[in-house]
């Protein structure tokens, strides 16, 4: 028979990091909304390091210089209902409210999304467009990784075997930054994304001076679209939309799968990105 799975629920982050260092093969489990899916068909883990409601890593707090720090343990319900997130970092709030439905939002955590790093992780394009930094910790200390450098491949990340995700840091956005978010899923709720996009677009004196455009579900990881970001710089809104549309052509190489087609993803991504500019309010 299979030996019983070990289980630890640490009292604080320090204890969690010690267990993580000692047992790098154990499953790091928070809400379980990804790791527990079809659990009876999965390989039984050697151990579970339970981070659900780990003290000290679940809060949403104001960071230095007007930024926001979202603890890795914060759930989608908490993020989706937070007035500060909704006001200043709306793509993340909107993404949170569109993840699964009530049951998934009650259990799913930001840290889980960042850690499992699924190509369809709904919060990930928002983190990318918002220029988030991921704070990780280990017994060796703490470090921050720009989200742009976090994903290293299909479901692989910069997280080391002894590290845990602690928080996402959202920097304040420059005045005149417009934000946008759009998820296109298989249906209107409880849906897996086919394409999603997040945008942070800075407009000064009527022209776009800076833009971060991030897309999800169109590659093996969430991606920024540099071609669009460069093409729109210095353009007025309508012109930026046209330039963005043109720059989207050939910019991504999505795949066909059981949920959608490459051509659909390509086309919708182009429409969404163009609309981010033309639809700015």
């Amino acid at each position: 028979m299979t030996p019983e799975t070990a289980y630890t629920r640490p009292r604080d982050l320090a204890e969690a990091l010690a267990v993580r260092a000692a047992q790098p093969s154990w499953m790091v489990l928070a809400g379980g909304t990804d790791l527990m899916v079809s659990a009876i068909h999965k390989r039984v883990p050697a151990g579970i390091l339970d981070l659900w409601r780990l003290p000290g890593v679940g809060a949403i707090t104001e960071g230095a210089g007007g930024g926001l720090v979202i603890g890795a343990g914060a759930t989608w319900l908490e993020i989706g209902r937070d007035a500060r997130v909704a006001k200043a970092w709306s793509p993340l709030a909107l993404a949170a409210r569109e993840i699964g439905a009530l049951q998934i939002q009650a259990r799913g955590t930001l840290g889980g999304n960042i850690g499992t790093s699924s190509p369809v992780g709904d919060s990930l394009p928002a983190l990318l467009a918002l220029d988030a930094e991921i704070e990780v910790a280990s017994v060796r200390g703490r470090r921050r990784v720009p989200y742009a450098a976090w994903c290293t491949g299909y479901r692989t990340t910069a997280l080391a075997a002894d590290e845990l995700i602690v928080a996402a840091h959202l920097p304040p956005l420059a005045a005149g930054t417009h934000l946008a978010w759009r998820k296109v899923g298989t249906r209107r709720a409880q849906s897996i994304s086919k394409v999603m996009g997040a945008a942070a677009m800075r407009v000064e004196c009527g022209v776009v001076t800076d833009a971060r455009i991030a897309l999800g579900a169109v590659a093996d990881r969430p991606i920024r679209i540099a071609a669009v970001e460069q093409a729109v710089r210095g353009l007025a809104r309508a012109a930026a939309a046209e330039a963005a549309r043109a720059a989207m052509r050939g910019a991504i190489r999505p795949i066909d799968d059981v949920r959608s087609s490459a051509s659909y993803r390509d086309l919708v991504a182009e429409n969404l990105v163009a609309r981010f500019f033309s639809g700015m309010i």
């Binding site: 298989t186 249906r187 897996i192 059981v258 949920r259």
Partner: peptide, 9 residues
Amino acid sequence: NCIVPTFAD
């Protein structure tokens, strides 16, 4: 992946 309508659909 084999979806049917939800309340929201």
